[in-house]
Simulated scan of single mutants.
Amino acid sequence: MERVLVTGGTGFVAGWCIAGLLDRGYAVRTTVRDGRSPAQPPVETVRADLTSDDGWDAAVADCAYVLHVASPLGLDGRADAGALISPARDGALRVLRAATRSGVRRVVMTSSTAATTPADSRGVADETVWTDPADPNLTPYRRSKLLAERAAWDYAAANGLELTTVLPAAVFGPVRSPANAGSVEVIARLLTGRPPLLPRFGFTIVDVRDLADLHIRAMTDPAAAGERFIGAGEFRWLAEIAATLRTHLGGAARKVPTRPVPDGLVRALARVVPPLRTLTPLLGRDLTFTSAKAQRVLGFTPRPVAETILDCARSLPG
């Protein structure tokens, strides 16, 4: 039985990757930052942190593959650049070095569409695009994902490591645990009536279950070696997401807002409301990320976005 290491095992995406691997008959090991969040049998747990070298050789030992999913999020806008960039970039390099020493066949690293965003805020972006690191609108989170992926590709090229990167759009879908739900917080906030007005934000959405499947496909398919793959489905404005919730959830969506808010007011509020700061660059941005390459090469099949939104909402604690 082949063993796979999934980093950050308590996270939203990692949890679904682990479930998918177990369903396919793999032995799974995962990392946690402390001893307070152990994985459940048959998943083996190793303590390792992206900010330290300790534990990584033990984590990758006897593993055929590594899914490096762990990365700091900082979605509330309060984390500074140092708190995000160093763990993301240096942590990725720690994982890759340990994988090289252990002779791992391939590392699949979770990047982000934040690393493949063109300066033009409209149109369609694919894997050939690289975000400009000099873009003044880059938040610390987006910069951390870009620099981490760049560093990973440089390391892989210099050390002969087989690497594939997966670049998710906004990840929604059912949560397995209320902790570390990441971007699902967008849905949770809408259901509680926050924000009370709807900013003109839009997202290309990917279902976490489809994203986990894409990671596993990228892990073993020979055609995936040395490639970037965007994991994405359909684009939706926040107002359209809210409308889907109201249309299908009845009383459970009674607090979901209905009225828009002017762009100027959003920018003003972002100065004093940290969660808005990471999203302000998205204001009015009509940019779609395409997963055509993943669909063509790996058979990736994103499900309808309404299913993702509703399954996400129904999985959240009431």
Rank of each mutant, 00 (worst) to 15 (best):
A134Q: 14
I187M: 05
E162L: 12
R78I: 11
G25V: 15
A27N: 12
V104W: 01
N137E: 14
F235T: 08
P195D: 08
V171M: 08
P260L: 02
S86T: 15
V104T: 03
S112V: 03
D57V: 09
T165W: 07
N180C: 13
D120M: 09
G202M: 05
P262V: 14
R47W: 06
R277C: 04
T31Y: 10
N159K: 06
A270T: 01
A70W: 00
A225R: 13
T117W: 06
A79S: 13
T278A: 12
L269S: 04
T110G: 04
P133Q: 12
A88P: 05
P196V: 13
P195M: 07
V69E: 05
S71M: 11
R36Y: 13
A39C: 06
A125F: 01
L245N: 05
T45H: 03
G173M: 12
P140W: 08
L269K: 09
D132S: 11
F203I: 04
M1H: 14
T244E: 12
A239V: 12
A152G: 09
A170Y: 05
S111V: 10
L93A: 06
M219T: 00
A14M: 05
T247E: 14
R94L: 04
A79R: 04
R142S: 13
L211R: 00
P304W: 05
Y141P: 00
I230V: 13
D34L: 06
G264R: 10
R101D: 13
V13T: 10
V107R: 03
V43T: 11
S291R: 02
F289R: 01
P72M: 02
A151N: 01
D76V: 06
P72F: 00
S86A: 15
F12Q: 09
T244W: 05
A188Q: 13
P281S: 04
A169K: 02
D263C: 01
R3I: 09
W56L: 03
G77Q: 00
L316D: 09
W56G: 01
D207C: 07
G11R: 00
A119H: 13
N180A: 15
A179H: 14
D54F: 13
I205N: 01
D311P: 13
P38I: 01
R259F: 15
A151W: 05
A242L: 09
R106F: 02
A268V: 15
G318W: 15
R236D: 11
V43K: 03
G82N: 14
A61R: 15
C312F: 08
T164R: 02
T128W: 06
G74K: 00
P41Q: 08
L279K: 10
G251E: 07
L138C: 06
T164C: 14
G233P: 04
A313M: 04
G250H: 05
H68Q: 05
